[in-house]
């Protein structure tokens, strides 16, 4: 038996060892968060962040590749080195800043919104006995826990799709998520899913997440981002995918600097 197992073990180590040398810069994304990042009909990753990420890498003269990782483990797996950056619609928060570093934002702070089935009415100042859906590990999840936990049930989903599916199926009353993610859902549902209640501003802008020690990479990406904002590429992509903006024209940038 030993004679069989030993070469097998060696072959395994040799095979797995081949992946150690990775020159490519790898970008982790969720691949299930349209229009930010999703699988298109060809089975390839597509979306605002895929286009932007590739553009930024070209500017920074890096060879990049996107890898799909579940949202709930996207930060630990970057720290563990499975990939070097995160572009997954991730808002900058103080809590996240403790573990990872962020680039400049590539999408301004996006208000979170409540979606519900058509015809349902809610008193948001006094919400009671409702099932509220969020995606686990998001800024909305933290907000919902803090705000509604006492009198309502918070249902946390692993994937954004599941939360929308459960809202459509009536398993939750309200879904709290990024407006940019809910827009196409509300629009595409044919009036079955509508916005309710106020907009809430929770996190900061969306930015690239990186390991805190990778300061060189952060510099490169920020330089590329500044360039892409200045020549209108970022605004063009935002308009293409979100029908919003422009956010980063010289006039807008000046206004922000003045604040």
């Amino acid at each position: 038996m030993k004679k069989i197992l030993l070469p097998l073990a060696i072959a395994m180590v040799a095979f797995t060892g081949s992946a150690v040398a990775a020159d490519k810069v790898r970008i982790g994304t969720e691949g299930a968060y349209a229009p930010w990042n999703f699988m298109d009909d060809k089975g390839k990753l597509a979306g605002y962040e895929i286009d932007l990420g590739m553009d930024l890498c070209k500017r920074a003269e890096l060879e990049c590749e996107f890898v799909v990782n579940e949202w709930d483990s996207i930060i630990p797996n970057m720290i563990a080195g499975n990939y070097d950056m995160i572009m997954a619609g991730m808002s900058v928060t103080d809590e996240r800043k403790e573990t990872i570093a962020f680039s400049d934002e590539y999408f301004p702070a996006d208000p979170s919104r409540y979606a519900a089935a058509k015809g349902d009415e809610f008193d948001f100042d006094n919400l009671k006995g409702k099932n509220i859906g969020v995606q686990g590990g998001t800024i909305q999840a933290a907000y919902a826990e803090e705000t509604f936990k006492e009198n309502n049930t918070i249902k946390s989903y692993e994937k954004p799709d599941q939360s929308v599916a459960d809202l459509a199926a009536g398993n939750i009353d309200i879904l709290l998520a990024d407006g940019s993610f809910l827009d196409p859902v509300v629009e595409g549902s044919g009036g079955m899913i509508v916005y309710v209640g106020p907009n809430v501003q929770i996190g900061g802008g969306v930015a690239i997440g990186m390991r805190q020690k990778d300061t060189d990479l952060a510099e490169k990406m920020n330089a590329a981002l500044t360039e892409a904002k200045a020549d209108g590429t970022v605004d063009k992509l935002v308009m293409e995918y979100f029908k919003k903006g422009p956010f980063y024209t010289p006039a807008e940038e000046e206004k922000k600097a003045a604040e």
Partner: peptide, 14 residues
């Protein structure tokens, strides 16, 4: 998974 975005392919419920 339900898809509501025509860009991402066929629009269909769950």
């Amino acid at each position: 998974a339900p898809n509501y975005l025509a860009r991402a392919g066929l629009v269909h419920p769950d």
